[in-house]
């Protein structure tokens, strides 16, 4: 059957992509200038002997190829290594950061998907009207704003009303679970909103153009000639076809959720993956960086894979 063929092909493609990415991951951080031991903030003015000892401890004195196979072997056992900077297992550190990042980014992304596709559909449907113009200019405005600038502006505006950074209020002692959740939500609002607004611009513009394209197709005219209501034409015929490009966009942005956003997490001091990557770069913390990029790779590849499978479900023409 053709369907099985397609799925197998996509699966192999995903696996190969992951493997290639793993290898590039390994090479790229070792090719970067600077070394782990020279930049460790914890060992200022270290002697040569101490550095050599540290290099030995981290396994950096072994030949590169051997390091590579050790890396792959450890990965196969689910071992991402130990952070140079914190001496904690990378998997533990990443998981914690991920737990902070995912809710924040997910909230923003869902806001963008829901609101963006809705106004995109509305704008296309009411093409040329004030609604359309307002929606397009709003979308363009947020899409073109630099993320960190938007974040700073929101900070300026809301700093009094909402917390300006961090994930929890340090002075909230022994909160009840409900208090804790509300506290985190309050801290999450601004970073999520920043991300959501930037993504919103993208979603609403892409949805609008995908919808306009399908609304101009002959089968839409056929649907109108059949006597269908506008509402049904938009939902049954136009949106179903416009879904195809939108699905790709959704999969891509979901894939990037685990990357967090370095800019946003920096601006709002959000202790997520973005922050972790930022500090790891400063510390040349290879295992952390490798771990973070591995996570990102897996997530992006996975969601692309899901998008491919969804496409297969949504577009009968692919089944050829």
């Amino acid at each position: 059957m053709r369907g099985a063929d397609y799925v197998i092909k996509r699966t192999i493609f995903a696996v190969v992509t992951v493997f290639v990415a793993l290898t590039i991951n390994f090479i790229i951080f070792r090719a970067a200038p600077g070394s782990a031991v020279s930049n460790l903030a914890r060992v200022p003015g270290a002697t040569h002997a101490l550095r050599a000892e540290l290099e030995h401890e981290f396994g950096l004195d072994k030949p590169k190829l051997q390091q590579y196979f050790i890396y792959l072997g450890q990965l196969a056992h689910g071992n991402l290594g130990v952070s140079f900077a914190s001496q904690q297992p990378v998997s533990h550190e990443l998981l914690q950061a991920l737990g902070n990042t995912i809710p924040m980014v997910l909230l923003g992304t869902l806001f963008a998907i829901g609101f963006g596709t809705f106004t995109g559909i509305l704008a296309a449907y009411r093409r040329g009207t004030a609604v359309d113009k307002a929606s397009v200019s709003t979308g363009l405005f947020f899409y073109s704003l630099p993320t960190q600038w938007l974040g700073l502006m929101l900070l300026l505006i809301f700093a009094g009303t909402l917390p300006s950074g961090g994930r929890v209020d340090a002075f909230l002692f022994n909160p009840t679970p409900l208090q804790h959740i509300l506290d985190v939500l309050k801290h999450m609002l601004l970073p999520s909103l920043t991300l959501g607004l930037v993504l919103y611009g993208e979603y609403t513009l892409i949805t609008r153009s995908a919808m306009l394209e399908t609304l101009g197709e002959d089968y839409i005219l056929t649907a109108r000639a059949k006597g269908l209501s506008d509402r049904r034409i938009v939902t049954r015929h136009a949106f179903r076809n416009a879904m195809l490009p939108i699905t790709t966009l959704i999969a891509l942005s979901l894939g990037y959720i685990v990357a967090g956003s370095i800019l946003i997490e920096r601006v709002f001091s959000w202790p997520g993956i973005g922050q972790a990557v930022y500090y790891s770069v400063q510390n040349r913390d290879y295992p952390m960086l490798q771990g973070a990029f591995l996570l990102l790779t897996l997530s992006v590849v996975f969601f692309n894979y899901v998008a491919d499978l969804l496409y297969f479900k949504l577009d009968p023409r692919i089944r050829e």
């Binding site: 197709e217 002959d218 089968y219 005219l221 056929t222 649907a223 000639a225 059949k226 015929h237 179903r240 076809n241 949504l314 577009d315 009968p316 023409r317």
Partner: peptide, 15 residues
């Protein structure tokens, strides 16, 4: 009712 030129796109491709 109505039919169109060539009918290449007169039918919805996903139904």
């Amino acid at each position: 009712s109505m039919i169109f030129q060539g009918a290449m796109n007169a039918l919805n491709p996903v139904q």
